[in-house]
């Protein structure tokens, strides 16, 4: 059984009188443990696809099966639960809460999952240590470098043991050296069995994955494994 199964997924936006087709009947399967890159020019529908995969948005047509459940039929609260349990987000701009320290940021998904305070502190500390930030747990985001912030974001994305790691341009705001560090971290996570989906427009970033899906005008243009 596929971890992700999209069937004829569409997403239309109404812009005044005009209808924008951001995705046109996309059909796609992703297995557990895959490391996939989604590529395409600006405006091709990458982010729209990411939002649908991450249950932040619901399709206007088609069906989405995630881990065996039909996501397109769920209501707002159920989607929030799925996002909490099944999905870890990593954003281009990190999206850490500025007033909270690293520990608190990583704890947050556990808070929403209802894990008791003592336990979630243990889990969060362990996750921060696993991304190499054991000595930065009480730093606020503005006291951390870009690479460290993205590591906090990775720790936060992983802390609930999600089925999928979704990263939208994770290296877009990093210099090339730290970008490589984050990609090495992804590689390590992939080896450990995590399912990773990365949206990028950089060929070099995409080459780190095992499979590249190219999108153009809301359609899949190509879907090929990476040959190394």
């Amino acid at each position: 059984m596929s971890l992700i199964r999209l069937q004829k997924i569409s997403r239309r936006y109404q812009m005044g009188t005009e209808i924008v087709h951001a995705l046109r009947e996309v059909t796609l399967d992703i297995q557990r443990g895959e490391y996939v890159a989604i590529m395409g020019p600006s405006g091709s529908g990458k982010s729209t696809l990411m939002n649908l995969l991450g249950c932040l948005d619901t399709p206007t047509g088609g069906t989405y099966e995630l881990n065996g459940s039909h996501v397109s039929e769920l209501d707002d609260n159920q989607l929030a639960e799925i996002r909490n349990r099944e999905i870890g987000f990593i954003f281009q701009t990190f999206n850490l809460l500025p007033r909270s320290d690293a520990l608190r940021n990583v704890e947050l998904p556990l808070v929403y999952a209802g894990i008791p305070a003592g336990e979630r502190r243990q889990i969060a500390l362990a996750k921060l240590a696993s991304v190499g930030l054991a000595d930065r747990v009480h730093h606020k985001p503005n006291e951390l470098s870009g690479g460290q912030r993205q590591r906090v974001a990775v720790a936060r994305a992983l802390v609930n043991k999600p089925s999928i790691l979704l990263a939208d341009e994770p290296t877009g705001n990093l210099d090339s050296k730290t970008g490589v560090e984050i990609l090495a971290l992804f590689e390590e996570l992939s080896r450990q069995g995590h399912t990773i989906i990365v949206v990028t427009h950089e060929e070099a970033v995409a080459r780190h994955s095992r499979r590249i899906i190219r999108i153009r005008d809301g359609l899949i243009a190509s879907d090929e494994p990476v040959v190394k």
């Binding site: 991450g54 909490n84 987000f89 999206n95 809460l97 998904p109 929403y112």
Partner: peptide, 16 residues
């Protein structure tokens, strides 16, 4: 607004 978006993305419900 962005903070609200982040919280929702990582699992905060409307009620929360």
């Amino acid at each position: 607004t962005r903070e609200i978006g982040v919280r929702k993305a990582i699992g905060a419900k409307r009620r929360t």
